[in-house]
Design a binder for these strands. Sequence first.
RNA 1: GCCGUUGUAGCUCAGUGGUAGAGCACCUCCAUGGUAAGGAGGGGGUCUCGGGUUCAAAUCCCGACAACGGCUCCA
Length: 617
Amino acid sequence: MLESKQPGLYAMRHSLAHIMASAITRLYPGVKLGVGPVIDNGFYYDVDLGDKQLSDADFEKIEAEMRKIVAENQPFERFTKRINEAIAWADEAGQPYKEELLHDLKRSGTTIASELDSEELGLPTDGTNKVEEVSFYRNGEFTDLCRGPHVESTGAARAFKLMRVSGAYWRGKDSNAQMQRVYGVGFTTEKELRQYLAMIEEAKQRDHRKLGQELDLFVFSELIGPGLPLFTPRGTILRRQLDNFVQEMRDEYGYQEVSIPHITKKDAYIASGHWDKFEHELFKITTREGHEFAVKPMNCPHHTQLYASRSRSYKDLPIRYRETTTCYRDEQTGELSGLSRVRAFTQDDAHVFCRTSQVEDEVLKVWDIVDRFYGTLGFELSVRFSTHDPKTMDAYSGSEEKWQSVEEQLLSIVKSKVGESYIAGVGEAAFYGPKIDFMAKDAIGRTWQVATAQLDFNQPEGFDLTYVNEEGERERVVMMHAAIMGSIERFLSVYIEHVAGRFPVWLAPEQIRIIPVNQDEAVKQFTKDVVANAKKLGLRVAIDYDNESVGKKIRAAELMKVPYALVIGQKEVESGEVVPRVRKDIEVSEEHEARTVEEFLNTVANETKSRVNKTSL
RNA sequence: GCCGUUGUAGCUCAGUGGUAGAGCACCUCCAUGGUAAGGAGGGGGUCUCGGGUUCAAAUCCCGACAACGGCUCCA
């Protein structure tokens, strides 16, 4: 993030990577080093220790050694070598990974693999310059190929901690050897380090997998399969409410709901271009007659056929289809994670078919919906303009010229909305077109990619989608893909953690919990009346009939993060008034001792309708 | 898919070679309770699954599956 770009902090983190590598070299002579760059909040170093597997238990030893090196206050000395001398050095030092990098540098002036490597080595990434000379840094007995910068000496290192070790492929390629990547964090002060560790702890507390279990929102079953979440009644209410919100807004903007089957012939994906790229991620079905089908991994081909089902006039455009529907992708098991990455996910999908001249309007409509949706849910949004990478054109459909012109058009829309304050996502485009990706910043400062609007000039070709213009000629239609939540599952994972399971009243699966003090007939009757009236208003209410103390029931309601709890006893029966207990995070504007049941219920109904998370109760 | 770690009751976890435990949850009874845990009793586990070693395996070994931390991937 930004802070790691601060020159001082960056240099310190980079120096910590070297200090760690020095420590590991001292402790495990013969270690072969990969690369050790700066990352958000810290650094890592890739090491090849042969058969020795590092574990958390080794961190203490390494950290102790690092502290020693810091105490020794070794100066960081920069020097250079001719490329051939450098290669000889790597060979002699028994550093084959470094040697490989150096050979690449010599040959082509770049390490190609990924930008990370090049950046780490401080080289031009365009591959034009051959390297004649490379820089090294030495601290104490440790020398490393490196462009720097570094701090003056190891004594300048401040607060750090090793976090974890994991596998990482040499140069990020899964066909390469796997090394051990040791992650550390580094800060200028102990206080910042403590704050960071506290944030990690907070994130753990908010983990949607933990909350999903505690709040009874969704489950996984080993019998059903990995990556296939099952939503409980409570979780399903969340999904429904969120989707209703999106779809209400879409209706305002002229979208029409459609409905499609979940499987299709293979031919649809050949026409769309998906078969080529994603065949191995499809769940395939062969019918008893030998025809090949696939479970849908996306909805565009189906929607194109609705469009193509009759001839379209320019007067019909734009045509906007919306549908919330589940897609299935055969993700690798190692990539699955809670609701963030699943094999069955539900998209709040939409496809707009329009003329080029209508693109701007349509993008802005999506943008409006995105702003309203994420604004209501309390996220701060940023925008990424995701374009093709000219260096890897074979990953995309369509010509370079077409890509450039479409991106130009989309970029002018982005600029009209946010000026220059967008993130350039080169190489982040879909294979069929550029995207505007919306990134949401959550309550503890993490950003997630959420909504997306994608221009597609390839599938209209593949499916031959046209309309008839004013002159009676057929013209190619433009297609836009737009999802607000993206995948509801993934969105929920972000949102649950954003609010830490404390859903606003309009979303809370259970909005009101009634806690009868005893089993008296009058109390029972009163309770039943409250429930009946609440249901008439469409409120979600439950009664806790357990034979437990009031205190315990309050606690249970609190743990389930129910917004309102009503204790009903003799007092309420006699007065007809209730004193709602309001969940602590809900902002209370004007507090009242007691309200009639009717007043209370109407207030909650209004809060639900207006989708606010504050109350006048 | 790859590397590593883990897998004991619905949940959180203890148990390291001699045939399984706690707290919470659940059920029953008592208590008729007033805003974050009232009391007593009870039920519940092929110790993920399949092989192996051993007189004996939750415990040791191998394999599969699953979860977790990363890597790779993400229409």
